[in-house]
Write a protein that binds this DNA or RNA. Structure first.
Lengths: 245, 245
DNA sequence: AGGCCGCATTGATTTGGATCAACGCGCCGT
DNA sequence: ACGGCGCGTTGATCCAAATCAATGCGGCCT
């Protein structure tokens, strides 16, 4: 349940001007709000870092000194109870922004699932940057609002949906925003383990496995490998997900 | 589960300049970010409205035309599944700001629990106001961040806590932010029904009732009336809430 | 090629909370 | 004062998912 981990590796401690200009994640992230003409200011405060699978790079309760922007890979955010029970509050992929919080400590932990690359920004420096780029502040508000809506959906899922409905919701979400595999366009990769899915959906590994198998035998989905899913009946699965079954 | 309701009553369709200046909720809300010198501009776009108990004044899925600021009473926000299952995503009291969303439809419904007074602001007009008062935009970001942290806590509760731990968490939260009754300072009012508490905690009415009774017989709390609670053992209850029991 | 290890699946049994059912009580309207 | 009704409590039973327990399987190291 809890994996001690290696440390993240800093790739570029003092950002060169081009790291942001050439960043392939920029268009998908809040960094897009800084115009080309000023991109060097952003690059100057960005610290590019890599984290190997399993590495914890944000620890709940630690002093919140940085913001993070994911530029490659997938991250799990989670909270834990003292006895080891874990709730994954979300998965973050390319372009996602982490670390919004008013408090001076992080409210959650974050771990690399696969190999992850992200930019670290000192909070203090971002604050001064925000004063010059109100468009970025607007983007942050939009990000926070979007996440709030997602969080409310997740509360409905955790509080009121059955295991079957939870898996259906999760699969539909992943098919929308997950990594699309070559081949059938309804096919996608699941970078996270069954344990991660269970801790995201408030279930156990066994229930996740059993329910996926059931959805497969009933013809809703295919499971070409443990980390790949193809949706056979998107409409029916969506109905399941929204409790209309 | 679903209560059809009377319509909210508009008290002051065209805000007089003093309605914001004299508003007792202002200091507790985002409106505080508008300085006294400009408060008339805020008042000009505020529509003061009252809603009787049970009135739905935001309907999930409706076109999101307004923001809301609660100035009296308590509100429940919720999402529903087609078959009537309900998840309450939060309760809002004086000073709370509702309606943040990027989407053009509301992501949740909101109902008055007791008699509620709130200010309605057209989104379009707030947007122009925000351009002139970046401090307000910062306040909104702070509000959104705070709610995001609360939402993550609630996900942990819904996904991983036992009924006992959920009630303990809820009672500790209410004792911190709820209406304090006269008498013992550990005593507070619960404006919401057992059904509301159940739908907030992902439980049934029966489990809420039984669990409260158990906490009472075990000496953690007193229940002077169905809508009042006194905490007898705050430390022990907090330990329960955080899973350290 | 073999064996180990971590993840996933599948099966048997248990259980916390849901559901079904009855009753108590305070409040309101007549 | 009475009766009805909505809300809350309490009791009996059920069930979806958790827990306990093997077993399968693929990748990696030697």
């Amino acid at each position: 349940m809890y994996t001690p981990s290696t440390r993240p590796v800093v790739l570029d401690p003092r950002g060169a001007a081009n790291i942001c200009a050439n960043c392939e994640a920029r268009s998908q992230s809040v960094c897009d709000a800084v115009p080309d003409s000023d991109i060097a200011r952003l690059a100057a405060i960005a610290v590019v870092t890599r984290a190997e699978p399993g590495t914890t790079f944000i620890q709940e309760g630690d002093s919140a000194t940085h913001f993070f922007n994911i530029s490659a890979g997938t991250v799990r955010m989670y909270k834990m109870l003292p006895d080891g029970r874990r709730q994954i509050t979300g998965f973050s992929g390319v372009g996602h922004f982490l670390g919004l919080a008013v408090s001076d400590t992080y409210a959650f932990s974050a771990e690399a699932i696969d190999r992850v690359r992200f930019c670290k920004f000192s909070r203090a420096r971002v604050r001064t940057l925000l004063d010059d780029f109100p468009a970025m502040e607007k983007r942050l508000l939009a990000v926070a609002s979007t996440e709030l809506v997602a969080a409310q959906d997740q509360m409905l899922l955790l509080g009121r949906k059955t295991a079957r409905e939870r898996l259906a919701s999760f699969l539909m979400l992943q098919s929308r925003q997950g990594t699309i595999c070559q081949g059938s366009r309804s096919r996608f990769a699941l970078p996270m383990s069954r344990g991660d899915i269970a801790d995201y959906l408030g279930l156990t590994i066994e229930t996740v496995s059993r329910t996926l198998t059931k959805l497969r035998t009933e013809g809703f989905i295919e499971i070409p490998s443990a980390s790949e899913i193809a949706i056979r009946a998107p409409g029916a699965l969506e109905n399941l997900a929204t409790g209309m079954a």
